[in-house]
């Protein structure tokens, strides 16, 4: 905008002393400082001092091509998982936001239910399903679709599938919350203005659900990036994710400095990607301030 035009209740931020409600977030703030900010700085220091200042860990990362390769692979798998979660979760959320509150409640419980079982348990369940003697192969053979068991387990597809199943609730919940908040009159307005159901979806519903898409996508992407049990158990030899690398640097090789450097590189990459994503999808366009 060229200039701020005074509109009652909008954008006016008068200077004043600290809002007393600020103190409500104080406990969380203290918690975050001690368990988030301080450790991040510790890791930061760990990656640069050994014990004197050094950038050898970072040199190692960028010189040996393998680490970049693994980072890239991690990002690609996480992206695939996030996109698949979105594709699978969007219609479910749409349904949940559209049905009666009673049915929605049941659906929410069904969505949350898997969160009560551990990641390891659910990963093992996928191993049982996708194995050579697993249910899927048995069914395929029974139906005469294949003669020999096909390789499903220990593939990238298996990793993505298992991770999508594990992370899907984290996509659905923010999507549902956003969709629930969309004023149904807007859809009616679109229809009476001449847009059919499909165009109403594309022009109105989808753009208005982008905050939910962003929230869900960000959540799933960030958690995907740190996955290591699932890819280790159901992935093939090429499905090395960076968290697995960090874990082995810490527990087997005791090279904490390099592990710290890996963690920081991963964190930076994640922030950059999420930042770009938010910029391009343009969340600020209609939820933030109007000065875009």
């Amino acid at each position: 905008m060229k200039s701020r035009i005074s509109i009652p209740g909008a954008q006016e931020k008068p200077r004043r002393s600290i809002d007393p409600t600020f103190y409500l977030i104080l406990p969380l703030l203290v918690l975050l400082i001690f368990f988030m900010v301080v450790p991040v700085f510790r890791i930061f220091a760990l990656s640069f001092f050994d014990p004197d200042f050094t950038i050898k860990h970072y040199m190692k990362f960028f010189q040996a091509g393998i680490y970049l390769q693994i980072l890239l692979r991690t990002l690609v798998i996480s992206l695939m998982v996030s996109v698949c979660c979105l594709i699978a979760g969007y219609p479910v959320s749409y349904l949940m936001a559209d049905v009666s509150p009673k049915t929605a409640k049941i659906l929410i419980i069904l969505v949350i239910l898997p969160l009560w079982t551990g990641i390891l348990v659910r990963t093992y369940a996928w191993m049982v399903l996708l194995g050579r003697q697993g249910l899927v192969n048995k069914l395929l053979i029974y139906l005469d679709l294949v003669a020999e068991p096909i390789k499903l387990l220990y593939t990238t597809k298996a990793v993505v599938l298992a991770m999508v199943q594990i992370l899907l609730p984290l996509m659905i919940l923010p999507l549902y919350a956003t969709m629930k908040g969309i004023d149904r009159d807007l859809l009616k307005a679109s229809k009476i203005l001449g847009a059919g159901p499909l165009r109403t979806f594309w022009r109105i519903f989808l753009p208005l659900s982008t905050p939910g898409i962003l929230a869900g996508f960000t959540l799933v992407f960030i958690i995907s990036i740190a996955f290591f049990i699932t890819p280790a158990l159901v992935g093939g030899r090429k499905d090395i994710m960076i968290a697995m690398l960090i874990e082995s640097q810490i527990t087997t090789l005791l090279n904490w400095g390099f592990a710290a450097a890996l963690s920081l590189i991963l964190m930076t990459m994640t922030l950059i990607i999420i930042g770009l994503f938010h910029k391009f999808i343009g969340i600020n366009r209609f939820v933030g301030s109007g000065d875009t």
């Binding site: 009616k188 307005a189 679109s190 009476i192 203005l193 022009r203 109105i204 208005l208």
Partner: peptide, 27 residues
């Protein structure tokens, strides 16, 4: 509905929040 060619003004206006005034009117 979308083929009826009727104008309508809603109680809470139902303006599309992600569109500018001219985009709303152009819709």
């Amino acid at each position: 509905t979308y083929k009826r060619n009727i104008g309508m003004v809603f109680q809470n206006y139902a303006l599309f929040p992600h569109m500018t005034v001219s985009q709303n009117v152009a819709y």
